[in-house]
Write a protein that binds this DNA or RNA. Sequence first.
RNA 1: GCCGGGGUGGCGGAAUGGUAGACGCUACGGACUUAAAAUCCGUUGGGCGCAAGUCCGUGCGGGUUCAAGUCCCGCUCCCGGCACCA
Length: 804
Amino acid sequence: MYGRDIMSTYNHKQIERKWRQAWEENQIYKIKADSSRPKFYCLDMFPYPSGSGLHVGHWRGYVLSDVWSRYKMLQGYQVLHPMGWDAFGLPAENDAIKRGIHPSISTDKNIANFKRQLHEIGAMYDWDREINTTDPDYFKWTQWIFVQMYKKGLAYRKQMPINFCPSCQTGLANEEVVGGECERCGSAVEKRNLQQWMLKITEYADRLLGSLKTLDWPEKVLKMQESWIGRSEGAEISFSLADSDQQFVVYTTRPDTLFGATYMVLAPEHEFIQQITTPEQSKLVQSYIEKSLSKSSIERMASKEKTGVFTGAYAINPVNQEKIPIWISDYVLIDYGSGAIMAVPAHDDRDYEFAKVFDLPIRPVIADLNGNVPDLPFVMDGKLVNSGKYDNLLTADGKKAIVADLANLGIAEATVKFKMRDWVFSRQRYWGEPIPIIYCDDCGEVLVPEGELPIRLPEVDNYQPTGTGESPLAAIEDWVNTTCPSCGKPAKRETNTMPQWAGSCWYYLRYVDPQNLQAIADPNRIKYWTPVDLYVGGVEHAVLHLLYSRFYTMFLHDIGVVDFDEPFTRLFNQGMVTKEGVKMSKSKGNVVNPDELVEHYGADSLRIYELFIGPPEVDAEWMDSGIEGVYRFIQRVWNLFERSLTTTVASTKESEQRTHRLIATVTERIEAFKLNTVVSAFMAYLNEVGNTTDKQSLETLAILLGPMAPHLAEELWQILGRTSSIFLESWPVADPKMLVLDQVTVGIQVSGKTRGAVTVSADASQEDIQAEAMTLTSVRNSLDGKEVVKVIYVPGRILNIVAR
RNA sequence: GCCGGGGUGGCGGAAUGGUAGACGCUACGGACUUAAAAUCCGUUGGGCGCAAGUCCGUGCGGGUUCAAGUCCCGCUCCCGGCACCA
C-alpha cells in the first residue's frame, strides 16, 4: 500500500535528519574487504583542518566523489570512500606560538568542527576508518618509511644552500617555492646554507616520468609533472685550462655546436673559480660573487639583463684547440648540470644576449637545411658548418659524432639530466613528525630502532622557531638528550621535523587498515583495495603532493609493501568555486558558508547545486539565485511523487521509453563526469513527465536520484512503500530496445541552411520525409526557381536538399 | 618566451561534423490572491515584418565539406603552469 490521501510538503530538515540518523544506525556504509565483490576505492584529498571550516568550494569535490561512490555502490561495488585529517602544519603551530596552547588541542577542536560540517554533506564516509596524520599510531609509520628509505640510502644529510622562508622560519623544498616566493605564505625566499635531510627523489626521476603515460589523469597535471621532472639528453664534456692540465666539466644538450663555443661560463658559486682567477681579475670576481650571493632568488629572477665578469683564465676547446675565455655569471645555475657551460652565442638565446653585452665573438656553426645561415641566434636544428670534418652533418648526427669522438679521447660522455632536484625534507619547526635519527659522538648518525617508533613530540613551553635553522625541539633538553641505540652512550636526537607532505604521501594505504599496530596495513587488505581507483582534489597539488606520493609509492613497491608503482589510477581535479571572480578565502572575506545553506535549503539542494553550477573541472562563480532553482527542482520532484501516489497512473510504452532514456542519459553523463548535465537531464525529464506518472517510473527515478540527493531518494523510496535502504538496490540498466523512438523529428535544410523540421514515424523513408518537407513554406520558398542537385539524408537527423 | 586550457544570449552553461542556445538563473507578461510571498502558465540571441516569413548570429580572417561552435591554416584576447635548467 503506498497510496496516501493527503499531500505533504517537502521538509528537508526533517528528512535529512532522519536519514542521517538511519544511516548511522544501520551502518550501511561500513565496509570490509570482500573478495567476492569488485571493489572501488574513491578517495578525496584529505583536508588540513583549518580554523575557518568548510566553505562551498570544499563541498564541490566532496560531493563529486560521493556521487561516484554511491553510483558505484549501486552498481554492486564494494566501495571504500574514507576521510581523514592532514593535521600537521603551520597554522596550528603559529596559533600555538601566539596563544601558548598545544597545537594538538586546536587541531582537535578544528577536526570536530570539520567533522560536523562534513556530516552535513551526507556523504557515505565510513568514520571507523578516519585517520589523522598527527596520531602517533599513524606517524609511527611515516617515520617507519623514513627509516626504510634511510636504510636504502635514499635519505641523506647534506650541508647546502637551500630555500628558506623567513616568515615561516623554515627551509622549503624546491616544489614549495613558486616564482621565488613561499608557496604557503608568499614571502620572498632566501638562500641559507644549512645542514639538511634530503630524500633522493631524483633516483626515481626516470620512473616518475616514464609511468606518467600509464595514468588516467588530466593532461594538464601530466604535463606539469613532466616539465617539473624536466628530462634532457646531452653530454658532459671536459675542458682543459689553457695553462695547466686541470679540467672542468660542462653539460650541454648541443654538443653539435661545440665549434661555435666562444667562451665559457661558471656559476658564481662554482668552486673552480678560486683556482683559476688571475690576480688582476681577482677583485672584480670576488665582488661579483658577493653581489650575486646576496641576491634573493626573486631578485635574481627579476632582472634578466646579463651580468658577469671575466676570470682572466682560458680553456681549450677540445675539438679545435682554440683558446677561449672563462667568465662567471649568475645566469648559470650552480645546481644544474655541472654549474658550468660552454657558451655558443650563435645558437643560444642567453649566450647571445651575454655575448652582445660583453662584445664577445659570435660564430655561427649551424645553418638551415639549405645551407643558409639564418638570423642569429638560431636555436633550431640544422646542418653543421664551420665545424671542420663535421661539416654538413645534421644536428642529430653531429651530436652523436662529436660526442663519440670525444668519448674515445675520454673527455666526453652522453648523459641525461633532470631539472628535478632532491627533496629538502627537514623543517625547523615543532609541529611535524620528528625525524628518527640519533647523533652519537662515537657512532655518528644512528637510526632509531624500529621497535622504538614512534618518536613522539615532547611537550614544550615555547613553540617559537629559533630562526637559526634549529627547531624549537632543540631547546627541550630531556627530549634531545638520549642514549645511542648502538653503543648506549649519551647521544642527541635529531631536532628537525618532517614536512607536511610526509604524512600525506602514503595515507591512502592506511585507510585500508587504519588501526593496524603491527604493520603499515595488512597485505591482503592492501592487495584488495589499492591502488585508488578515483582520486578527487584540487589542481594545486599537481607537482607537490602528487609527485611526492608517487615517489613514496614507487619506493614502497621496491621494498615489497605494495605491488604497483602508481597510487592513483584516475585523477579528477575539480574547479574552484569563486565569488566575484576570486577564490574563496577567509582573508578575502568572500566565503559562502554551507551551514546556512544547508539550514535553509537542505544538503540535497546544496549537493545538486554544487553539481549544477558548471562543468566540474572548471572554476565556477557562486550565485545565490542558482540554489533557489535547484530547491524548486527538488520540490517539483517531491510534488510529482506526492501527486502520483494519491492517484493510480498506469505505465505506458511512452512512460517506459522516457524512463529508459533517462537511465541511459544519466549513466552516460555520470561516466563522462558531466555532472552538471546530469542535473539538466533530470530537470528536462521532469518537464516532460507532467503532473503525475506511474509507480515504475517513480522507482527508477528515485534510484537515479540517489547519488546526487541521497536523503531525498531514501525518503522517496520509503513513501513508495519500501522498507530497506535505496542504496541496497541496483543501478538500473537501460534496455536498448526502449531507446528506439517511434517518431523522429528530422531537420530540413536547403543547401545546408536550416529551413524547418518535420516529425515523422521512425520508419519513414527518405521519400516520405522529402515529400513532407516540400509542404513547408520556407522550403518551397528557398527552392523556388532552383534545380535540385542532390539530396542528403542522415537517418533520423537531417535531410539536406541541395539546389542550384 | 615556452607549454596547457579557453572565447557561444542579459548571466551560468548545452550541443557523437547534422535543427546552435538544452537545462537553469534573471527580466517581462498573465493566472491565483483583498494584497504580497510562494506556486502555476507564457515570452525571453539580434534585426525587419500585422503575419506567413526573412536576414544576421558561437573572438577575428581564410579554408575543407552537401553541412562547421565542432575539422584544418593564420591571427587576436583571456585564464592557468613553467620560466636564465645550458
